[in-house]
């Protein structure tokens, strides 16, 4: 008798994670593509404001990687949706897995992707500046970026991308539960926002904005994001846990 292998969950998750890094390598190509587009948007006309009188026109262009980060968040969302689709789920079940390890390795992959997205989007801020200086010939006024700021910026950017991907992951999983969600979720969201804006003095998106984007304490922000992503990933995991695969 062939000896049976006892399955260690950590080992399986680690193997799946390494497998996913290889399998989803195209996601990183599209990351670069998205960021390059965003960089050109940043150069093309973002952050412009002006003032003019009859004597002069003053244009202030601000260079930052904000647009790159926003695009990267969308990328995170789309990447997360992609890995919940049937073919990607089935990749796991070709080899050793159960639904929990599949989800855990997906989350690990998304964390990695978010970190990479966070690092590249914050660093691409430098590329925006260099391109603005060399191609558009501007004098660049800038205040020095402290190392601490850079690190906090990268972590916070990664957390934003991770949040976007946890939302995408839940959407994608819901869409696998029932195709109806593909129409229902966007319809609900749009309808809800319109209703909310018309009837509510404090629309929900403003509350969301204040809850995450205005939070000035990094520790509180970290806790909020980690809780949010944990809830979203956890919900997805519970939903997926009863689902059949490769059918």
């Amino acid at each position: 008798m062939m000896s049976l292998t006892s399955a260690n969950m950590n080992v399986v998750v680690k193997r799946q994670y390494l497998f996913k890094l290889k399998a989803n390598i195209d996601a990183f190509s599209s990351l670069i593509g998205i960021q390059v587009i965003a960089l050109l948007f940043s150069l093309g006309g973002m952050g412009m404001s002006g003032s003019s009188s009859s004597y002069f026109t003053l244009t202030v262009r601000s260079y930052s990687a904000d647009v790159v980060l926003a695009f990267t968040m969308i990328w995170g969302l789309v990447t997360a949706i992609t890995i919940t689709t049937r073919p990607y789920r089935n990749f796991d079940f070709t080899f050793v897995t159960n639904r929990l390890t599949s989800n855990l390795s997906n989350v690990l992959f998304l964390v990695t992707a978010s970190l990479l997205g966070g690092v590249t989007s914050i660093l691409s801020g430098y590329l925006v500046r260099v391109a603005g200086y060399f191609f558009l010939g501007h004098t660049l006024y800038s205040s020095e970026m402290a190392v601490g700021e850079l690190i906090i910026g990268i972590i916070a950017a990664s957390l934003y991308i991770l949040t976007a991907s946890s939302i995408g992951y839940l959407f994608g999983t819901l869409a696998q539960v029932s195709k109806a969600f593909i129409i229902v979720i966007p319809a609900l969201l749009i309808g809800f926002l319109f209703l909310d804006i018309s009837f509510n003095p404090m629309p929900i998106q403003q509350e969301i904005y204040q809850f995450y984007f205005i939070e000035s304490s990094f520790i509180l922000f970290l806790i909020k994001i980690l809780l949010t992503t944990a809830i979203l990933f956890g919900t997805s995991s519970i939903l997926f846990n009863r689902m059949g695969v490769r059918q």
């Binding site: 049976l4 292998t5 006892s6 399955a7 969950m9 399986v12 079940f93 050793v96 897995t97 159960n98 639904r99 929990l100 390890t101 846990n241």
Partner: peptide, 9 residues
């Protein structure tokens, strides 16, 4: 169903 042990073997 959902058994890692079965999947591994």
């Amino acid at each position: 169903f959902n058994s890692l042990f079965v999947s591994a073997n």
